[in-house]
Design a protein around this nucleic acid. Structure first.
Lengths: 201, 201
DNA sequence: CTCATTACGAGACACAAGTCTCAGGAACGA
DNA sequence: TCGTTCCTGAGACTTGTGTCTCGTAATGAG
């Protein structure tokens, strides 16, 4: 089953459906923040909804959990007032992101694993807010290297401090959490500094 | 079931067991290079061995596939003669690694997914040869920044050009394969250049 | 308030991973 | 060659994901 078409929710008994969907997401969110990777059955039961109905709203466990993933409402994570120095601005964003990844590591791992399912998804993965945060932090250098390069750099920064990099540094390289944080932070700093001299692409 | 203890293979009818294990690995390798992520049953059948026996040798599909993963025999991937310039040396290794990841992307994704199984593994993940390759390429700078920093840098480089980073740049950032290669190569270059000024840790 | 629409629940099914038991047969020592 | 060890195969079982059918009941329009 593919993802439910958007206009399905907007036809028929829309309020009932919205309610059901919200209950599922709320239940999933609660279980996720409680620390596990809930099965669809557990989410459905916690929401007082049957399993088949849960699958009527979300094509897979991955989609349900993705929809339930706690969002940060903030549109900016720069301190107030924002620093002027580029590396400080970026370091602030990176520090926030790295910390968040570390806090929610088990959920992030679950999301990554589910997103790698053998059957290619119909894009359940949403681009988060991290890239915009980095682009905001990099704004002062947009004039000198151009928007395109700023975008590339932001992608590289997100890659450097995301869960994917963390997983490797932890599981395979065997670094301690604090060491992982430090190395990711160093990578971010190095990428920014180098971008000033030779921007990507 | 945990991983079979190593000395199990070395006790009793060792040759029979070694043969069985080799047949399983050979069959898995064939199926993997044919392009899919075979089920344990498929590997066992292809090897003319029963499924329970396959599980006697490998605790999980992940372990079996990991054991079957094609190895590069080379202990060095530097061109002959090796360049003197540090960035060229590293670029050579990175280019090789990035190319290999791109070639075997589906298998690498399968390995990554299986390595993220909910139940923490008893270390089925082996540190590959990529880090040693990078350390070799970085040898000229060991005197100036120290072995420890070289090691850290090599870990960062491997993280930057591995499958984990590629997955994100492809699936979420939506870059084309060639763009992914270019950005990973840029990241590697930037990290090396910056390490000359402020080494990690 | 009535009734057709339509979301929901119960329960069964398919399939894959992983586990367990037990009996047969191959390997190896004597 | 004989006999015991112990590896292997057959097949059932458990758990989890995702699908399907069909009857029921809530919803909201008239």
């Amino acid at each position: 089953m593919k993802s439910m078409s958007t206009d399905y929710l907007e036809s028929g008994r829309t309020r009932q459906k919205q309610r059901t969907r919200d209950q599922l997401i709320a239940a999933a969110r609660e279980l996720i923040t409680a620390g596990d990777t809930p099965r669809v059955e557990e989410v459905a039961e916690a929401a007082g909804i049957s399993r088949p109905t849960a699958y009527r709203y979300f094509a897979s466990q991955a989609e349900l959990l993705a929809a339930a993933y706690p969002e940060t409402a903030a549109t900016s994570v720069l301190p107030d007032p924002p620093p002027e120095a580029l590396d400080e601005r970026v370091a602030a964003v990176a520090g926030f992101v790295i910390g968040r990844v570390q806090e929610n590591e088990s959920q992030q791992r679950a999301m990554l694993r589910l997103s790698l399912g053998e059957v290619p998804h119909e894009l359940p993965l949403r681009q988060g807010r991290v890239v915009p945060w980095f682009i905001e932090a990099l704004a002062p250098m947009a004039d000198s290297i151009g928007d395109e390069s700023v975008h590339r750099l932001a992608l590289a920064l997100r890659a450097a401090c995301g869960i994917e990099t963390r997983v490797w540094l932890t599981d395979v390289a065997g670094l301690e959490p604090a060491e992982v944080n430090a190395l990711q932070q160093w990578m971010v700093d190095a990428l920014v500094k180098q971008a000033l001299e030779t921007p990507p692409q």
